[in-house]
Design a protein around this nucleic acid. Structure first.
Lengths: 345, 345
DNA sequence: TTGAAAGCGCTAACAA
DNA sequence: TTGTTAGCGCTTTCAA
């Protein structure tokens, strides 16, 4: 292999018969270069196929134009939709992305991860892994100590922390109120794993919607799943046993709703006549379930994009070292999508 | 905000009363440091919460321990499963990942992307975007010129290029042969978009399996989709019209198969009695379709992991500058999963 | 408008 | 075993 060595700024300078700073000025579009010299240098750059080294520049600039992204459960649908929003927006706004995936959802010792990002001088961090159990304890101390702007996705509000989140609570309420509007009285719920904040919020929405019309949500009316279709299957049959009057069910996500429909199909339960079903997430496939599934759509792509924008704001504010950076909580509303699983034609 | 400046190697050295070099030796676990000094330095490092700068180190080492990853269509299921494999393996093997998502699947001008990776001195590149149309033309010239090891996922074999791919052709054959083994004679196909190499391969598998038993696959027996459930819906009804004898269908992916099942459900076609259906991909949800879907499982996670391993091999080989790096083609076999949609209980 | 000098934080090569 | 010197490729003073 021919060792075609990369030219450096020095080679360019020499070829153009100028100093390195002059080349540097051209690279950074500074005004103080005569247009002749500028032109000549540009030609040489072209000719040599010169690429400035981002690494060297970062070292001297102390800015990398790179964000660290922490994700988890990429093999599931949700997280990667968010990631997609992040990559798109970062690209448009001129930032690169260093990606790390948590080994498990509830990975607890994030300190090495943060250190890694720190040693790579990322300008900011996007924490796109879900909030589970106490896997957020760390930041109480660390996040200020780490001294890098950081934005969290979809977590419970805490002051001093910037957050972009879907309003899961109101999504849960919307779903349940929609079922109520159908005239159903016995509305069950299959929740996600309750150590997830999102799952708790959706469930709380269900509870409050029922309480609001004087129905007492009690323990025989719901069952806990783990987001997977498999768990939905199990939850559904458990629920059928302990809550046999159930005539509608709000399922914590679309994947679990899929297997609820399968169970109905296998056991001859008519949807929506005998049982109205609504999911959560709004994955594209839900429209093609049998029957088409009503659901609460959450725009994960927008979450990702907003997170990038907010982070850039944080970074830029941090630069005018004058004032404190003020954290923001941004909430995005989900939308109800009505399909055949909750509407009698 | 208190400007807690990051300590550098110099601060550590001074605090320990040694030279920077000695600290560097400790950092890199070199043997030539007395155990006393080593211990003292380690304590200081701890005390100061010193983190070596990966950037500075990269600059001097000319190695970043970072790979560039190019993906596309992250919001779909497949690509992110592969990405997950990549992140996991890279983490375990001590590499960081710079992620870029192509704006569109068939994005054609990849040159800026490659330049960007180059300027960031990535040690290698994983091209995890699908091969579509002529979106691979570029590398014929560039890939050697770019002078960075690069490995491609799921693309047609070409010499001088390292590739890790699922055997889509044989997957297509397996699916079709399975339908034949059921005694079906009129086997249709809903393909993916035929500018995708993967879609063509699967279709070719279907054709060859039919030809092998003297059935002539002709144009009325298949229809082209675009991977989405929506397109599957359309393709199915088109196929029903032009191929009314169809008693089995091999669908190019599980998403499209989902809507094929929906159509059957809506129109009273019994699956598998009237129509046997098999998909491709093996997404976890397929088991919970109505009825459970037979499919060809491709282990995308393994693709990702293998790619990382291979790339590291390429990088390491490139280091012993002596010999040419020999590209490898690694093929992973998919597996048949039989469920109710092709088996009469 | 241009250049010289110094430095970003680290490591390799050599000397002591 | 340790320190000195030089340099990775770039940018920022400051002078000319």
């Amino acid at each position: 292999m021919i060792e075609k060595k990369k030219p450096t700024i020095y080679e360019v300078a020499r070829a153009a018969g100028v100093s390195r700073q002059t080349v540097s000025r051209v690279l950074n579009d500074r005004p103080d270069v005569s247009s002749e010299t500028r032109k000549r240098i540009k030609e040489i750059i072209e000719e040599l196929d010169y690429q400035p080294s981002a690494i060297a520049r970062s070292l001297s600039l102390k800015k990398t134009y790179t964000f660290g992204v922490v994700t988890a459960g990429l093999k599931y649908i949700g997280p990667s939709r968010t990631l997609s929003g992040i990559t798109r927006e970062a690209e448009e706004l001129g930032y690169g992305l260093l990606l790390k995936e948590l080994a498990s959802f509830s990975a607890n010792n994030v300190s090495p991860l943060l250190q890694w990002f720190k040693s790579h001088h990322v300008d900011g961090i996007i924490w796109a892994a879900p909030e589970i159990g106490d896997n957020r304890n760390w930041f109480s101390g660390l996040s200020t100590e780490i001294n890098i702007p950081i934005i969290f996705l979809t977590m419970e509000k805490r002051k001093a922390i910037s957050i972009v989140a879907i309003d899961n609570y109101s999504g849960g309420r919307m779903a349940t109120e929609h079922l109520l509007s159908l005239g159903r009285k016995n509305i069950g719920h299959i929740s996600g794993p309750l150590d997830w904040w999102e799952a708790r919020e959706r469930k709380r929405g269900w509870e409050d919607a029922l309480s609001a019309v004087d129905i007492q949500p009690d323990d025989q009316m719901w069952f806990e799943g783990n987001w997977s279709s498999k768990s939905g299957k199990f939850a559904m049959s458990a629920l059928q046993k302990k809550f046999s009057e159930m005539d509608a069910v709000f399922v914590g996500n679309d994947q679990m709703a899929l297997s609820v429909l399968q169970t109905a199909w296998e056991t001859g339960i008519k949807v929506p006549d005998d049982l109205a079903v609504i999911g959560f997430d709004g994955i594209p496939e839900a429209e093609f379930y049998s029957p088409p599934l009503s659901t609460i759509y959450q725009n994960q792509d927008e979450i990702g994009r907003t997170a990038v924008q907010e982070l850039i704001r944080l970074v830029d504010e941090g630069l005018d070292d004058g004032q404190e950076i003020k954290p923001r909580h941004i909430t995005i509303q989900p939308e109800l999508i009505v399909r055949q699983s909750t509407s009698i034609p």
